[in-house]
Design a protein around this nucleic acid. Sequence first.
DNA 1: ATCATATGAATGAATG
DNA 2: CATTCATTCATATGAT
Lengths: 177, 177
Amino acid sequence: MEEGMSGFSNKSGSFFGKIGSTGTKCGRWNPTTEQLKLLTELFRSGLRTPSTDQIQKISDQLSFYGKIESKNVFYWFQNHKARERQKRHKVSFDDKYDNSKENTIDDSTQSLTGMYKVPEVDRVTETLQLFPLNSFDESESEKFRVHSNECRDNMMFSYTMGGQVEHPPLDLRLSFL
Amino acid sequence: MEEGMSGFSNKSGSFFGKIGSTGTKCGRWNPTTEQLKLLTELFRSGLRTPSTDQIQKISDQLSFYGKIESKNVFYWFQNHKARERQKRHKVSFDDKYDNSKENTIDDSTQSLTGMYKVPEVDRVTETLQLFPLNSFDESESEKFRVHSNECRDNMMFSYTMGGQVEHPPLDLRLSFL
DNA sequence: ATCATATGAATGAATG
DNA sequence: CATTCATTCATATGAT
């Protein structure tokens, strides 16, 4: 890979400079929670290896929440996918019986072979089925039952499928101190 | 090795974590960008070693954006201060914000001390009063109070407040793809 | 100061 | 050739 896609600027010579995001201090991209949320959601909905233009769109969208480049999106998916797999490998000592191609943990929705070609049919996630794929690693059905038990812990930001809720404004001015 | 990772509330709840990021980073606090923003802002304003009650207030406020414990705030300042210094070591000494009495590792070794022994007793040097500790905006912070043990779905207030909106509502409908 | 871990970034091998 | 996967490096940072 490399210049196969959007022509990422290789080399780490990359730009530097401060991030306008959240007063972040970094040299490398670090996703804001919003970006991460979106990316995660995409991943969850089955997107694993976005095509170049998908990457472009995603990146474009996310750029609204903070600085981001397409290569970041690209890497993110690469890494996320890989690590999801590796993690699975670690914890799953079950499928020892290799099926030659054991990595079938995902891509349940579409054949990965055809969707990364910018087939113009990349609307795979148009409506996004919230509960697609084999949510092997999440099984949140449990988490959402906030009725029976007294969930003693506070959930973080909503993972409310239907309505994502963004935190309220809440002035960042340290007036409360 | 020690294992057992973070030894705080690892057992009880602390499952969730970030947004299902890479599977889960549950285990250790991970600040949301908003939290980070606030913390950074505070730091930038000169806060370096918040007192216990300051920590409490901060933590309280930040809890709105996600799970957080006071010790996280405590650690954050510790680390941030230290790292800022070491980083500064190679550039130039931007002896910016210095509240005269900053080397006091902790004048607030109260409740938090249990988990952290302060090397060399610090001269308490009285409370470091950075700014007006007007903690009388309770009216506001009160309604944000969403403490654990209640599993409260605090997402009732969407963006009704006309406050500044960091970013647009984060459209989780990945429809743009 | 040190450790542990998460994760962005990069490279190269494998595959068709 | 184009893509995908695996591995590794680098670094930021929460926690001790």
